[in-house]
Simulated scan of single mutants.
Amino acid sequence: MPAFYLTLIAVLLAGFGGRDQATIAGLTARQGQRPGVLLVGLLCAGLTAAFAAWLAGIMLAQLPPPARAIFAGIALGLAGLESILFVPKRRPAEPTNSLGALLLVLLAGQLTDAARFVVFALGVGMAAPLAAGAAGAVGGAILGGAAWAAPQILDGAAARRVRRAIGLVLFLAALILFLREFSIL
């Protein structure tokens, strides 16, 4: 159970202000709270978390225990860099009304976002891909639901600063994990 709770907290932090959340919030602010947008967001969160957990299970079977922590550190570092470098700047000017297009945009964005890197990293690092995947799906659903219910929370520079700060914390955690694994720290 610790893998579930730790992954849930990490996903909620890493996913705050992400591209997927900004997309859902932008559509909701422009078109209103369409239930289809929420359902597509929940579906994508579940699918991408399951994919990250599946990849973690594959890597877990191939890596010896000492290499798992190093690999998890690399994935956490990538999550931190993604949070620092890819902060959504503004809402889309011409959002489409198509739920199919939204599905494709969310899937493409979530496959390489910080929250799914965290699911992958903790699934491998804690040797619990199923718990990490379940927590990633729940965390992604919470983030998508929050963006749908209150799209204004992502407005302004404060959300971008929080996202970058969380990215810095993730990157530092990865660095500490990496240095500890090599007995440098």
Score class of each variant (00 low, 15 high):
residue 61 A to G: 13
residue 57 G to A: 10
residue 90 R to V: 07
residue 112 T to V: 15
residue 119 V to R: 06
residue 51 F to K: 00
residue 150 A to Y: 08
residue 163 R to F: 04
residue 26 G to P: 06
residue 28 T to Q: 08
residue 16 F to Q: 11
residue 47 L to W: 01
residue 165 A to P: 07
residue 140 G to H: 06
residue 62 Q to N: 04
residue 150 A to M: 07
residue 48 T to L: 14
residue 49 A to D: 04
residue 136 G to Q: 08
residue 116 R to P: 05
residue 166 I to K: 02
residue 137 A to D: 10
residue 85 L to H: 07
residue 10 A to M: 02
residue 84 I to N: 01
residue 179 L to E: 12
residue 26 G to Y: 12
residue 10 A to F: 01
residue 162 V to M: 09
residue 11 V to W: 02
residue 34 R to D: 13
residue 3 A to K: 04
residue 133 G to M: 03
residue 144 G to F: 10
residue 80 G to A: 02
residue 53 A to C: 09
residue 12 L to P: 11
residue 15 G to Q: 08
residue 166 I to S: 01
residue 184 I to K: 05
residue 77 G to V: 15
residue 148 W to N: 11
residue 153 I to T: 09
residue 161 R to Q: 13
residue 29 A to D: 14
residue 181 E to Y: 02
residue 160 R to F: 00
residue 55 L to K: 05
residue 111 L to G: 14
residue 111 L to T: 11
residue 83 S to W: 00
residue 173 A to V: 08
residue 12 L to H: 10
residue 105 V to Y: 09
residue 144 G to Q: 09
residue 123 G to D: 09
residue 5 Y to Q: 02
residue 181 E to Q: 14
residue 32 G to A: 08
residue 40 V to R: 11
residue 40 V to H: 04
residue 77 G to K: 05
residue 112 T to A: 13
residue 90 R to I: 01
residue 63 L to C: 02
residue 116 R to S: 12
residue 71 F to P: 00
residue 26 G to E: 06
residue 72 A to P: 02
residue 54 W to N: 03
residue 46 G to F: 01
residue 101 A to W: 04
residue 176 I to K: 06
residue 10 A to D: 03
residue 104 L to R: 05
residue 111 L to S: 09
residue 67 A to D: 14
residue 167 G to P: 13
residue 154 L to K: 03
residue 150 A to C: 01
residue 16 F to P: 06
residue 97 N to M: 07
residue 53 A to L: 04
residue 14 A to Q: 07
residue 29 A to L: 08
residue 23 T to H: 01
residue 98 S to R: 13
residue 69 A to W: 09
residue 56 A to M: 05
residue 134 A to H: 10
residue 92 P to L: 12
residue 9 I to Q: 03
residue 81 L to E: 00
residue 1 M to C: 11
residue 47 L to I: 11
residue 164 R to M: 09
residue 138 V to W: 05
residue 27 L to F: 13
residue 81 L to N: 05
residue 74 I to K: 00
residue 169 V to M: 11
residue 80 G to W: 00
residue 113 D to P: 04
residue 132 A to I: 11
residue 178 F to M: 14
residue 71 F to W: 12
residue 45 A to R: 12
residue 148 W to G: 10
residue 176 I to Q: 04
residue 119 V to Q: 09
residue 98 S to W: 12
residue 76 L to M: 15
residue 155 D to F: 05
residue 37 V to K: 03
residue 20 D to T: 07
residue 87 V to A: 15
residue 75 A to S: 03
residue 47 L to A: 14
residue 52 A to W: 00
residue 158 A to Y: 07
